[in-house]
Amino acid sequence: MKNRIFALFLSLVVVSACAAPEQEQLVTFPQATIQLADVKRAVQLADTPQLRERGLMFQQSADAGMLLLYPEPRLISLWMRNTDLALDVAFIDPQWRVMVIKQLHPLDETPVSAPSAALAALEMPRGWFAEHNIQAGDKLTLLR
């Protein structure tokens, strides 16, 4: 009887693990220092395919911000899968200038795209760009 109960318990554990949604795993991002217009600050840096794919998913706060940096300019589209945060994103052109700032809505899987090839995307808490008077045309410098 004990063996049957153990086998039943073990099979339930295996089935629930297989059926579980994508699990939150601790991911550590390197830090980078940026200057955007007159604002200098540290942000999380996503500069590999794995880190860019993970982005701010499962994080509880966007206060640190995140710079998604690509090795060369490309068309960038972002979505908010597993991201329950209200964000703004600034798409950065190949000359390191803000092309456009767009809103990203919590858990919305609708792609939000840069208007043309971008080198980076800077995700910040909703309203951060407006609070700091950041707008299209402002220059971003990666200080590391």
Score class of each variant (00 low, 15 high):
L12S: 11
C18L: 15
D47C: 10
A62S: 08
H105I: 15
G55V: 02
K40V: 11
S77I: 06
L26P: 00
I34L: 14
L8M: 01
M80V: 03
A32I: 09
K2I: 13
P125C: 14
A42Y: 02
E109R: 11
D88E: 07
A120V: 10
M1W: 07
Q25F: 11
E123D: 13
E72T: 06
E109F: 02
S113Q: 13
Q31Y: 07
L12N: 01
L10F: 14
G65L: 03
L85R: 00
P115Y: 11
H105E: 15
R41Q: 14
D63T: 15
D63W: 00
I34F: 05
P125A: 08
Q59S: 12
A32G: 04
V14M: 04
R4H: 08
L12H: 04
A7P: 00
P21G: 13
L67G: 05
E109L: 10
V27L: 12
L8C: 01
L36R: 01
Q23F: 11
A114K: 12
I34H: 01
A121K: 11
Q59R: 15
P106L: 04
E72Q: 11
F6M: 10
S113E: 13
F9V: 09
L122R: 05
P49H: 03
I101A: 05
E24C: 09
G65V: 04
L78N: 03
P71W: 03
